[in-house]
Design a binder for these strands. Structure first.
Lengths: 222, 222
DNA sequence: GCTGCATGCATTGCATGCAATGGACTTCCG
DNA sequence: CGGAAGTCCATTGCATGCAATGCATGCAGC
């Protein structure tokens, strides 16, 4: 920790990013307990920035205080459903807003082209069973829609929810026969936004998210 | 800060709460710059817990990094509108969920009675120009609805939004002739929830929030 | 008189020491 | 042999020291 005197600044932010990436990658799995010293040594910084990164990630819903210390969130099925419900509401909002902006002529055609391309690539990656990439592309697709909505508050809230979902559904990376359905729903959303139809876009987004929620739920108790 | 060895624990959390209260009360007005040492001395703790409280409140959207140090958020009219849009979406969700639970018979009658009483008290305080109390009661009313929804994720997100709005609209504490309208809309929401009508409840909540947003906007540029 | 720069200062970011807390392990008693 | 209590240790929470950074102030030059 003496050799690192170059990066004299923002250790704390860099630590936060690294830690977030490790958690999203599953290197620190849900429920894993994290120690300050352990992480500090792994990242080559002192305990102070680690401590602050812990707090920041806890506020983002990726870490949870666990008595003495902190652990990676481990959402129960019910909690995950709650997250999905909120996500559905927010993605419905962003889809509506994006469609409104399209109707108002405030979206550049290139932006919609990009979105379409993301849908393509997501579908392709899924078909080819490139699951990790597919997850990333899928998230990009949804993020792009939220960006088109032009509401930073909604986008930020969604990033948090996506993070939580990504962590909690990491181990069940099934690409079932929902593949075709997912693609259809992406197309439907894309079409509604392109058509500048807020109601349709919102409905499509909400349905898509809720379907995803249903698919993510454990085998059910049937 | 040697005399404070009694409260040997959770300074950090206590600091966060105190600071949040001070900001919501307007003691630290929007845009005010906060120094670690200043706050540390004011609260009788060292800089470390203050630092962590700063981070936590920044994550909650109450503080914003301002180059060297931190300042109380000061939302522009546009940003505030974005916040209100998200709030409208989330309150529509919670109203729907609350109504669903009512329909499913999962709400105790006493809970709805409480809600009605909160609406009463809010209206009364507003009429009597007890603005500070009215703001608090109004928030309690909305929070109660969110609690009835039974979705902790939505509730938590809303708490953050309410905080931001409360800070940013503090100085314009006008109780215009919206008084009657606000009360009407509260009643409407309450009635829809009581009737177990999710669609009506959601619509009422959304409209109410968006109306509040319109009223909160500066004189407009007409 | 104004602008640009240099210097000094206030303030933060990070590291580390110290004390307290909580948990785990061991041991003793029933 | 099982359970409960005591003790020990790992780990965190908080305080503070030190170095670096950015800002303001003042001076000099144009």
């Amino acid at each position: 920790m003496h050799a690192a005197h170059y990066a004299a600044a923002v250790q704390t932010e860099s630590t936060r990013r690294s830690l977030r990436a490790l958690i999203l990658d599953g290197r620190y799995p849900p429920g894993a307990r994290l120690g300050e010293v352990e992480v500090a040594e792994a990242l080559g910084v002192s305990r102070t920035p680690v401590r602050e990164a812990f707090r920041a990630l806890a506020a983002d819903g990726l870490l949870a205080a666990a008595g003495r210390g902190v652990r990676v969130v481990e959402l129960s099925a019910d909690e995950l459903t709650h997250v999905y419900r909120v996500r559905a509401a927010l993605e419905a909002l962003t889809a509506e807003l994006a469609a409104e902006r399209q109707r108002a002529g405030r979206l550049a055609p290139a932006e919609l082209t990009d979105l379409a391309e993301l849908a393509d690539r997501t579908h392709r990656a899924t078909v080819e069973r490139e699951l990790t990439e597919a997850v990333g592309l899928n998230r990009q697709f949804h993020r792009r829609v939220a960006e088109l909505a032009g509401n930073p508050v909604a986008l930020h809230s969604l990033e948090r929810l996506w993070d939580q979902i990504q962590v909690s559904t990491r181990r069940s990376l099934h690409a079932p026969d929902r593949t075709a359905l997912v693609d259809d729903q992406h197309r439907e959303l894309l079409a509604a936004v392109t058509a500048g139809d807020p109601a349709a876009a919102g409905a499509a987004a909400r349905r898509h998210v809720l379907d995803t929620c249903a698919a993510a739920r454990p085998p059910e108790k049937e």
